[in-house]
């Protein structure tokens, strides 16, 4: 049995069992955990299909979207209530618009390489992707990181100020 076959057998069996548990278990916490495990095993299967970009997206979504949603739905929330203050949705829109403007300006200035090949038959242009993050796209990447860090710090500060007992 080759390494590819072993990885497929392991990830496929984990994914199948996890899917059955996620669909059949009555406890929503166990069911959600099984769903997250299934999605992670699917990321491994995508990597076996020569789709590393899809595997990375699936992995990031399982870790940063599915798991927080499971925790949000299954873990009891603290008894705090947010009243008044600026709209969080409006702040999110502003942050998203700022990041989109940064990305568009970076594309217009030629900072982001648009000719990166992701066709598997051509081989992945890893050096171009690396340049996109560390070389030519360093301005866009650094500015986005600074903007996200500032937004996170402001959100944490606003959240501390606005928590009042119900």
């Amino acid at each position: 049995m080759s390494v590819d076959q072993a990885v497929f057998a392991f990830a496929g069996s984990i994914g199948s069992v996890g899917a059955v548990i996620a669909a059949a278990h009555r406890d929503p916490r166990a069911s959600g955990t099984a769903l997250a495990v299934t999605l992670l095993s699917l990321a491994v299967l995508y990597a076996g299909l020569a789709a590393p970009a899809l595997a990375a997206v699936a992995l990031a979504l399982a870790v940063f979207v599915t798991l927080p949603l499971i925790v949000h739905l299954t873990v009891a929330a603290p008894r705090v209530h947010i009243e008044g203050g600026p709209s969080v949705a409006g702040a999110g829109l502003l942050i998203g618009a700022a990041l989109l403007a940064i990305l568009l300006s970076a594309v217009a200035m030629g900072e982001v390489p648009m000719n990166v090949s992701v066709r598997s038959s051509d081989g992945y242009d890893v050096s171009a992707l690396r340049d996109g993050v560390t070389g030519r796209g360093l301005v866009a990447t650094g500015t986005s990181v600074v903007a996200l860090a500032a937004a996170a710090m402001v959100a944490i500060g606003v959240g501390r100020d606005r928590r009042t007992p119900r």
Binding site: G12, G15, S16, A19, V20, A22, A24, T38
Partner: peptide, 8 residues
Amino acid sequence: IAAVLFTA
């Protein structure tokens, strides 16, 4: 594998 997932 996809068929198993979809059925579940």
